[in-house]
Design a protein around this nucleic acid. Structure first.
Lengths: 385, 385
DNA sequence: TCCCGTTTGTTCATGTTGTCAAGTAAATGA
DNA sequence: TCATTTACTTGACAACATGAACAAACGGGA
């Protein structure tokens, strides 16, 4: 983190592991008294006085003076991270567009913007990224930039290994961006970035293991085990799209029968209803509305989608045993229309010695992917610099 | 670890985290020079002189004086753990028998024994356990006892939460044994214990993430992610037995169609072939021999079993992304008869953006389960005491 | 053969980092 | 008012690891 935290411009603070963990604890678990942080991190109270002092002097921690619940003894003096002291830009790349947000330390979105991607030439994409970063730098300097995309990439490595949608392989994107904008830049897989948001600022807070399942144009799965975000071999995340639901169902685009993505992704659901009814103009949300109204074809397709999703979640829970599964993604709202089929399938496919895993549905904002990229940058800066 | 390591009886050595990590590094990664350990653990060379000295003086580490590969510079002086300095007993409980081994620090089996379990009354089982521990204590005192069983139990907790096969729930078995034999005792799930063996002394050495899949009377899955053995919610491990292979195949004992265990466990394979041919006397190994000889029915059943297993492994790999999958269990030798079907299915169900995970087949000795329990005890003693 | 470079391992002074003990501060409750 | 409880601070101290300097043990030239 080097010069990131500095008391004065001439006296940079060196961060120890203990300082880092205190800062992260306060960032993630909100205002806490020194005594409480000491208990959580198994440190002595005196250690906390010393560990927090430089942060307070530099303005990164504030004494929140908000009174806790009235109790005997001296009232505690909660500390809070001043979220405005750092800013991050997160960028999500898709095949035809680029979404970007500027967030503060608490991952609150402060600005957002986007650009079309006319093609996937590196120069063009890089130009658009630089433009967006410059636009979002106007209110003040950035601490880090995060870029997320579907494909294999990790914060540990400045290179995009493969990205089928963008047609890239072995592209040192982080290096190129970092040189162009002079801000530390990290890459990550989009689903893992979204999982990072849940881990620090969402439903995953307080859980040492949970899974995130996304529903949208595809299916995705991110996993946190033992408080650590899992990075699969070569940077892949949970590849659940082609998990087989049965062996004779609809065919996915790669020729498998009964893949989960042939049942539960929004394009598959829309197409299935639209072709059965020969009404090609129907949108995905039209289909959801029809199912909610009890239209038999839409109802059947969404029941199957919910069942497929329930089976996917049960399979993940059986293998990894998370405390919680968070459902998210552009199409999570379909849950409202197929919750019953989902939970029936979840219970049916959960191993009989377990109770079904707790499932939380997280409404999805369109800029959530870009926010994920910002959190990736934030985590990387705070933990690994 | 308190009094475990002692230079003299009156001068017990207090262990720091650094000492622990050095000792474990040497135990798991074999003879290494101080300089090499220093590099691996990111410590200074001088730290290693100090950290190893008490172990050497107490006789837990030996200067192996074996010359490494001839190279420039001063030859290194490899250090090695004296495996004989500690002994462990591991006990595997099944529905009708108890297997036990005595091992040294390197998990080498030095003695083994067993007892029938006439019933599952706690007093009877406890009596047999105590008898076995006393028999295995004859050559010298024990450092710890580990007990493994199918069900939900973890080293962190002295209580068996549930064990369907033994009909137990909420039984404080570790406490009872510990009081009876006066040796620290830990429990664990049997599959996780077996995974621990692979992690420290088997194919998992050198891999920060891998999965163990067992084939036998059931199917099991243990997972190591980020160098940590995963403990699912409530102490369960990978519950892959009822993973659905298709929706119309043979029915498992819980009424599901096409469960993995209806295809790939040894009883299911044997029964399928024996009933089809109306030859109830056939053993599982008879069935394997028939398939190897090309008998059409046996061939088909084993191809289906291999395919099911391949799909299970692919699913695990897709979700958790391990570097390696180790196949083991009482019936792994069936792999020889269905390797082709296995790898075809593995490739078919592996997500198209990945290459199939590397699979290693680990021959299984009948006392391997008990050895796992011993390793659980060893790990717990070395890491958490 | 004799130095030189290289790597290993040790010793000792130094410095960082967190704990302990003691004391101060700020509330509640009798 | 004063004891009790909890929070926080301060300074002495102990633990642990590092860095520098050095000894040891080898191979490889000149």
């Amino acid at each position: 983190m080097g010069p990131v935290f500095s008391q004065t411009s001439s006296d940079p603070v060196r961060l120890t592991d203990a300082m880092r963990s205190v800062f992260v604890e306060l960032l993630v678990h909100g205002p806490l008294s020194r005594a409480e942080v000491a208990r959580r991190l198994a440190l002595s109270p005196s250690a906390l006085t010393k560990l927090t002092k430089p942060f307070i002097e530099a303005g990164y921690l504030l004494e929140a003076s908000g009174e806790g619940p009235a109790t005997v003894g001296r009232p505690s003096q909660p500390l809070q991270v001043d979220a405005s002291r750092m800013s991050f830009v997160g960028i999500k790349l898709t095949a035809d567009e680029l979404f970007a947000v500027r967030t503060d330390l608490s991952a609150t979105v402060r600005m957002e913007t986007s650009r079309p991607l006319a093609d996937h030439e590196i120069d063009h994409v890089l130009g658009q990224i630089v433009e967006v970063v410059e636009e979002l730098t106007v209110p003040g300097p950035l601490s880090a930039v995060g870029i997320s995309l579907a494909g294999t990439a990790t914060p540990a490595d400045p290179v995009v290994h493969t990205s089928p949608f963008l047609g890239w392989s072995q592209l040192p994107l982080a290096t190129l961006v970092e040189e162009a904008v002079s801000v530390p830049t990290v890459l990550d897989n989009d689903v893992r970035a979204l999982t990072a948001v849940q881990q620090w600022f969402g439903e995953g807070v307080g859980h040492s293991s949970f899974a995130l399942v996304t529903v949208g144009a595809g299916l995705g799965c991110g996993l946190v085990v033992g408080d650590r975000l899992v990075t699969g071999q070569s940077g892949a995340t949970g590849l659940i799209g082609h998990l087989q639901i049965d062996d004779r169902g609809p065919m996915c685009e790669r020729g498998h029968h009964g893949c989960a993505r042939a049942y539960a992704t929004s394009p598959a659901i829309r197409r299935s209803i639209a072709t059965t009814l020969d009404r090609p103009e129907l949108t995905f949300d039209d289909c959801l509305a029809m199912a909610a109204d009890g239209h038999p074809v839409a109802r059947r397709v969404l029941d199957e989608a919910g069942a497929a999703l329930g089976q996917v979640v049960a399979t993940i829970a059986n293998i990894a045993g998370p405390e919680l599964v968070v459902l998210s993604g552009e199409s999570v709202h379909m849950y409202d229309v197929c919750a019953e089929a989902f939970h029936t399938a979840l219970a049916r496919h959960t191993h009989w010695t377990s109770t079904p895993v707790r499932v939380v549905v997280k409404p999805f904002a369109f800029n959530e992917w870009a926010r994920g990229a910002a959190v990736t940058a934030l985590q990387h800066l705070l933990l690994h610099r």
